[in-house]
Design a protein around this nucleic acid. Structure first.
Lengths: 196, 196
DNA sequence: TAGAAAATCTAGCAACGCTAGATATGACGG
DNA sequence: CCGTCATATCTAGCGTTGCTAGATTTTCTA
C-alpha cells in the first residue's frame, strides 16, 4: 500500500475538521431555531454551541444570513427527497395527494426550517443558472407530477406549489384553523386532479 | 352656542395630536420600509422622522413589533377595500378574475407592506373573537366570492386565498419568473371558476 | 402666579453583528 | 530535536440596536 505524502493527509484532515464544524454550526442553528425561534440564533450563541469564539464562524460563512441560507438549502434538499419519496411510493390515492400531504407534513414538522427556506429573498432568480441544485431538485418533483398531463406542466406545477406554500404559510402564521386542514387538502387535490 | 368646559376641549386636542402623531409614525415606517426595507425601520430613525425622542414612540406602541403590527393592520384594511372594489366593479371577465388581479396587484405594488402583513405570526388565531376586524373584513371578500356557489365557501375561499398568497410570496422572493404571471393567473381563474 | 401633573428628553444598559490586532498552536526544514 | 514561520484561534472593542429609569421641561389648574 502506498503512503501519501503527509502534507496531503494533514490537509485532508483539516478539511474534514472544517466540514464537520460547518455541519455542527448548521445543525445547532437549526436546532435552536426550531425550539426557540430564529431570533435566538445569534452568532455568539452558535459560537458557544460549538465551543469556539465568534470569529471562527466567519471563516465558514460570510455573515449571519449565510448561516440561514445554509440551513435553507439543507431544507430544500430534505424537502426534495421527501417529495420524491412520496411521489414514487404512493400509498393510497393519487400521486398528487401523496405529494401534497408530504409537503404539508414537512412544513408542519419543521416550521423554523420552512421559514428559513422562504423568508430570505433570493439574490438570484429561481430559474437562474446560479440557483443551487437543491432548489431545482425540489421543484422538479412538482414538474414530474404534471408531466404529460397538461399542456403546460410549468404553470400547473407553479400553481400547485403556490397553493401548498400558501396553505403551509397561512397555517404556520395562524391564519388558517387547523380543524379544516383535511378538507382543504382533499379539495386541493380535487382541483388539480379532476379532468378539465 | 354653548362653550364646553375647557378641560374637555384640551383633552380632545391632546387626543387629536396623539392620533396624528401615531399616524405619522405608521406612515413613516411604511414609507421607509417600502424604499429601504424593514431592517432600516429603526426606532431611532422613526423618532427622528417625527422630530421626537425615542421614548415617545413607546407611548404609542408597546415595542417595535407593535409598529409593524399597526402597519400590517392598515394593510389589511386597504387590501380589503381593494378586493371589495374589484368584486363589485367587475370590468371584464369573472369576479374571481377581477379579485385575483386586484390581490396580486396590491401585493406587487406594496411589497414591504405585504411582507409585514404576513411575516409576523399572530398571537391569536385568525377566527378568534380578538382578531382585528380589518383582517376579517379582508377575508370576507373571499367568502362573498364563493357564496352559494359551493357547498363549502370557507374551504374554497381559504384555498383561493392560499393560492394567491403563494403566488404573491413566491413572486416577491424571486422563486417565480414574472414572465409567466399572466398565464398563471389565467390558469388559476380556470381552476376556481370552471364548473365541477 | 404657585404648585401639581403631564409630557418630553438625556443618558445609559445590555445585546447584537462584525472585525482588527494580539496570541497561541502546529507543521516543516535544518 | 529545535527554531521558524504560517495558520488557527482568541481577546477586546466598535458601532448600532431595542428599550428604559430618572431628570427636566412644559402645560394645565386653581
Amino acid at each position: 500500500m502506498k503512503t501519501p505524502p503527509p502534507a496531503n493527509r494533514i490537509a485532508e484532515r483539516k478539511l474534514r475538521d472544517k466540514q464537520t464544524r460547518r455541519a455542527q454550526i448548521i445543525t445547532a442553528a437549526r436546532q435552536i431555531a426550531e425550539i426557540e425561534g430564529w431570533s435566538n440564533v445569534t452568532v455568539r450563541r452558535l459560537a458557544d454551541e460549538i465551543s469556539y469564539s465568534q470569529p471562527v464562524l466567519y471563516a465558514h460563512f460570510e455573515n449571519r444570513e449565510g448561516i440561514l441560507a445554509a440551513v435553507a438549502i439543507e431544507g430544500f434538499q430534505e424537502l426534495g427527497l421527501a417529495l420524491e419519496k412520496a411521489r414514487k411510493r404512493v400509498k393510497r390515492g393519487s400521486t398528487v395527494e401523496s405529494v401534497a400531504a408530504a409537503y404539508l407534513e414537512f412544513a408542519a414538522s419543521s416550521p423554523a426550517m420552512y421559514e428559513a427556506m422562504f423568508s430570505l429573498t433570493l439574490t438570484v432568480p429561481f430559474d437562474n443558472a446560479a440557483t443551487p441544485p437543491e432548489l431545482r431538485f425540489a421543484f422538479s418533483q412538482f414538474l414530474e407530477l404534471f408531466q404529460g398531463q397538461s399542456l403546460k406542466p410549468e404553470v400547473l406545477s407553479e400553481l400547485f406549489w403556490a397553493n401548498l406554500h400558501g396553505i403551509a404559510e397561512l397555517t404556520r402564521t395562524k391564519r388558517f384553523p387547523p380543524s379544516r386542514q383535511k378538507e382543504r387538502v382533499r379539495t386541493l387535490v380535487d382541483l388539480f386532479t379532476l379532468p378539465r
